[in-house]
Design a protein around this nucleic acid. Structure first.
Length: 675
RNA sequence: GUACCCGUAGCUCAGCUGGAUAGAGCGUUGGCUUGCGGAGCCAAAGGUCGUAGGUUCGAAUCCUGUCGGGUACACCA
């Protein structure tokens, strides 16, 4: 089935061939069968809402539109209060009687659903515990794997620009975040009722390719790795490092000689004795140099013959030169095989894998259209630049004086192509935070062009993963390859799983052990990235990424497996617990706490989408796992003699299990049945 | 220089559309196992929320200044 047919059959947008008059390339085939309708979209009647939250909002809207209710803070939770309304204003202007009256009205409106009590200027809302527990558990049982989802997205399309490694280089830790955050966000948006399209915007075009091609021609015989299919990517990376350091050297040498030349002129003019000692010489120079000359020296950039050759190669590539294209294709295919290994380990898929090269042909039409619309103009150096609409944005170059395209050109083209192909309501770019201003400028250009038709453009900028000694850089060679991290995590996980299996004397095949270890390792690595908000930078720490305790991926997987063990046993012993009564639960203690956290979960799913922040979910999941573990060590299930209590606990565990699984699935953290 | 991000416990972070006693994890100290999975549980110690001012009945949260750390302002991506 072609993509077009797929879109038609699922009632989606049929790809256009132009966008606002700009022709776009034909949509290349999807690499996956498009999940036209994700599992979350199959059945909207199941979507759930955090009940009291919404009920409260409605009551307040009628009774006191100026006030809002917030979840009670930790300190008052001891009083078993769920929400608190701060009515200080009412208290002050209308007096305590008005607060009392308001509380009475609200209480009345709740109709037994919840109660409102006055405590000074606060109106405390308390859920009616039995009814609340019944509702929450009922929703989980009814919704199953859809628990927590909602239809905020109204089935609109969102395109996510994720992962985007550069080809001809190994993936290192720095690429982890876009991949992992992007995947989680894609699932989260799906759970919020959006149709999601993940597009791996491969860095497969640009001057870097020219320089690589040049390096290949110069030195490929010196790099033995290039002959062995196993090490070819490493070989390409060597070439890349070699030519870039050579370029740096040339530029530096050329810069120094330019500076020297300028300094000589100044020295001659100022009649400075250049044989003076360093300090005296500096003082002399400071005496005669002008501010303008200082700025000039700072602005001097070196030339590099190698870089010029590289640019020529890139131009050849853009013009369809056969030799250049063959080389490029070869390097690209090689890299994809390497990337695929990592994606497979992490369990990540994409609908599309549309590299920058896809858009290379659109440059001239794009530039013409932007010029015609009065949104771009040529500068004195012959470069075509965007005209920013807001203060503080710089004029982004979109066409070089030699006519070739840049990153920005291809990003603009890509925006246009995606609009034509997918007609998205939203596009989310999961790219490092250091590109924040770049995206502001490109988005500004596009939004001016598209006007009101523009989809919402979001840049989720994440902080870099840094080493103790600073930023990672392939060119400097101080990187931790992603494969190493995954391998190390796998080794440690394998060790733990093996010991556990022996200790519990459970028979597991070697394959099973290996698969569980993989899942635990992946869980640890992904959770390490998603447990905090995306904006922060992370200083890489082996101990922390390999931590299996406390607030960690394996902790959550462990709790899930524990729950699963209990549920499994109930199956084996053919214990049914459909008929349970929440009155047999300790609603004031750990069991009530578990229910409250389960009820919080759908809100977290919504928050995660609104803030583009998966950690909203990981936080609640951790709380849930912790509450379960506390319950687990305090109460027993199968040793409980009271069958009614046992059944109620089993039902509660099955709800907690469902919630935890749903949440971990949104984060793309595997949940093995045993660990 | 201009813009943006960050500063909360020894370390890593939540909390930020203003509300009651600022919360976790790691680490430290002490306790829990004749028990359904100890990758666990309970508890203690640990805080002038960088700093100064402002708004407010009320500020970690909003505003302004300031200090410290980071990032971006390329004919790179």
């Amino acid at each position: 089935m072609s993509n077009q047919e797929r879109f038609r059959t699922s009632g989606e947008h049929i790809p256009e061939t132009t966008y606002k008059g700009i022709p776009v390339p034909e949509l290349p085939p999807a690499i996956l069968e498009v999940r036209g309708v994700s599992k979350f979209l199959q059945s909207f009647e199941h979507y759930t809402i955090p009940t009291l939250e919404f009920y409260l909002a409605r009551v307040l809207e009628q009774q006191a539109p100026n006030l809002s209710a917030k979840p009670a803070s930790q300190s008052v939770k001891d009083k078993v209060v769920d929400y608190a309304i701060a009515a200080h204003g009412v208290m002050k202007t209308e007096g305590p009687d008005a607060v009392l009256a308001l509380a009475a009205n609200i209480d009345n409106d709740f109709n037994g659903y919840a109660s409102a009590e006055v405590d000074g200027p606060f109106i405390n809302i308390r859920q009616e515990p039995v009814g609340f527990a019944e509702r929450v558990m009922g929703e989980v049982q009814n919704a199953g794997e859809l628990y927590g989802t909602n239809n905020d997205g109204l089935e609109r399309t969102v395109v996510l620009d994720v992962s985007s490694p550069n080809i001809a280089k190994e993936m290192h830790l720095g690429h982890l975040r876009s991949t992992v955050i992007g995947e989680a966000l894609s699932r989260i948006m799906s759970a919020n009722g959006y149709r999601t399209i993940r597009d791996n915007h491969l860095g497969d075009w640009g001057t870097q390719f020219g320089t690589l091609a040049h390096a290949y021609n110069l030195w490929h015989e010196e790099i033995p790795e290039l002959d062995n299919p196993e090490t070819q990517v490493a070989g390409l990376q060597k070439l890349y490092i070699k030519i870039n350091s050579a370029i740096e050297e040339q530029k530096e040498a050329s810069r120094l000689s330019s500076i020297l030349k300028l300094c000589r002129e100044i020295a001659v003019r100022g009649q400075i004795d250049i044989t003076l000692g360093e300090e005296e010489l500096q003082a002399e120079i400071d005496r005669v140099i002008s501010e303008q000359e200082k700025a000039e020296i700072d602005a001097i950039e070196g030339d590099s013959a190698l870089l010029d050759e590289g640019r020529k190669w890139f131009t050849k590539l853009e013009n369809g030169d056969e030799e250049a294209i063959a080389l490029w294709q070869w390097a690209r295919d090689l890299s994809m095989l390497e990337f695929e290994k990592v994606y497979q380990t992490l369990g990540i898929n994409f609908e599309y894998l549309l590299g920058e090269s896809v858009y290379s042909g659109m440059s001239s039409d794009l530039c013409a259209a932007l010029v015609a619309a009065g949104l771009a103009e040529e500068d004195e150096k012959g470069r075509l630049c965007l005209i920013p609409s807001k203060k503080g944005l710089s004029a982004k170059v979109i066409r070089r004086s030699d006519g070739s395209s840049l990153y920005s050109t291809r990003d603009l083209s890509c925006l246009i192509a995606r609009c034509a192909w997918f007609n998205p309501a939203k596009m989310i770019y999961v790219v490092g935070a250091e590109q924040t201003s770049y995206f502001k400028e490109v988005f500004d250009g596009f939004e001016q062009f598209a006007g009101e038709d523009s989809p919402e453009l979001v840049h989720v900028g994440f902080g870099a993963i840094e080493l103790d000694e600073g930023k990672m850089s392939t060119r400097k060679g101080n990187v931790i390859p992603l494969v190493d991290v995954l391998d190390e995590a796998y080794k440690q996980a394998l060790n733990r799983v093996t010991i556990n299996a022996e200790k519990r004397q459970v028979a597991m095949s070697a394959e099973e052990v290996a698969e569980i270890a993989r899942q635990v390792a992946v869980g640890a690595v992904i959770y390490y990235d998603l447990k905090q908000g995306p904006g922060r930078k992370i200083t890489f720490d082996w101990d922390e990424i390999l931590s299996f305790e406390g607030n960690s991926g394996p902790y959550l997987q462990y709790a899930t497996a524990r729950m699963n063990g209990l549920l499994q046993r109930s199956l084996e012993e053919q214990i049914t617990f459909e008929a349970f009564d929440v009155r047999n639960l300790d609603l004031q203690g750990n069991e009530g706490e578990i229910i409250r956290i389960i009820a919080e979960y759908p809100l977290a799913v919504r928050q995660a989408a609104l803030k583009y922040d998966p950690s909203q979910i990981s936080g609640v999941l951790y709380k849930l796992a912790h509450a379960f573990n506390a319950f687990y060590s305090e109460s027993s299930v199968f040793d409980e003699e009271d069958v009614a209590k046992r059944n109620a606990r089993l039902a509660l565990i099955s709800c907690a299990h469902q919630t935890l699984k749903n949440g971990l699935d949104l984060l793309n953290i595997p949940t093995p049945a045993r660990v």
